[in-house]
Design a protein around this nucleic acid. Structure first.
Lengths: 195, 195
DNA sequence: CCTACCGATCGGTAGG
DNA sequence: CCTACCGATCGGTAGG
């Protein structure tokens, strides 16, 4: 069992679980797989965590908290809708880039949460999406954005682009997260076409 | 057990499985769940299909075939890169709209394919993506598109937007698939901003 | 953190 | 399409 930085044993368990869940999916990951990754017996996991799902809950809700903090910062600023959207996108990307593994789990595995956690999670998500939608609507009202585009489509396209980033972004690549967020924002706001 | 249109029993099994896999994920869906949906015993499923994975294979590779057919049609046309991209997007969306359930499974569950199917699937996908990337590169070369945007980022953003559509598009909504594809293409090519 | 173990459930087969 | 069943594996507990 190798060291994984300065993490508590519980944090190590959660981190290893995140890697496993990302790779195989939550349902296909067994506690025995996880124990093996950590070099211990499956039963020993339960001195650190209460259940398999508790790990998923930590991962999902901790990420949700980070996203909300980032968006709240942006909303405080007194800038145009276009600029707010740009900053919101960059913030979202930066939160994901800080932990791509947890981000992937957050995105793909949250549906395995049981009630009432699933409900709470989905409420947080819809709230977050609606706050981005409000920014887009503001931009459409004040003439910054086209008002011909369907707002739901626009915001879902935005989140699709953002949320798939952990699936293909290579943290070893030359492009740093801030630039990635900037380019993504530029592409979504200004489009591919030269003008 | 209700009728599910004019489908063979095997097709009914596959269709019900697609719904189940979409809802709960492949790994969390049991053959007993599937049997119950169809009103039969789990063991009886095996007179129609060879294994659980065979169902996943059908779903994934049938969708892949549809996507490739659609793209091949577009590539034949003698039009600008921008127009090719637009038609490619509309085609992709139309293929998905024909079977949103299978599309969601295709996108989220293909990783549960075993070898060599997984390898084959990923090769088909990378080929498909690269052909879209070639269209974007063509547009960047001939001055239709900005050449400042990272091509990998552009194509991954495109596919993120396309592939998440089954997660939020409501087929009962007023916006029809062709318009959806058109609006999506407009947003990605021209951006949100007024020009 | 371990040994020893539990009841439940899994995908699938045999044989009709 | 059913009954009867298999070996494997699951998440988790008891007790140290």
């Amino acid at each position: 069992m190798e060291a994984v930085g300065n993490l508590s044993r519980k944090e190590q368990v959660i981190r290893s679980a995140a890697e496993l869940f990302r790779e195989k999916g939550y349902a296909a990951s067994s506690m025995r797989d996880l124990a093996q990754k950590l070099g211990i017996e499956a039963a020993s996991l339960y001195s650190h965590i209460k259940s398999k799902e508790e790990i998923l809950q930590s991962l999902c809700f901790d990420m949700a908290t980070e996203f909300r903090k980032s968006l709240a910062e942006v909303e405080k600023k007194n800038v145009t809708a276009g600029e707010k959207l740009r900053l919101g996108i960059i913030g979202h990307i930066q939160v994901m880039a800080k932990d791509l593994t947890a981000s992937a789990v957050f995105m793909n595995e949250h549906r395995h949460l049981s009630q009432p956690y699933l409900r709470d999670f989905l409420l947080l998500r819809i709230n977050y999406i609606n706050r981005f939608k409000a920014i887009i609507e503001e931009g459409a009202r004040n003439g910054e954005f086209k008002d011909t585009i369907d707002k739901k489509l626009a915001v879902m396209t935005l989140f699709s682009s953002l949320n798939w980033m952990p699936m293909w972004y290579d943290p070893a690549s030359k492009i740093v997260p801030t630039d990635l967020g900037q380019q993504l924002a530029d592409m979504l706001v200004n489009g591919l076409k030269k003008n």
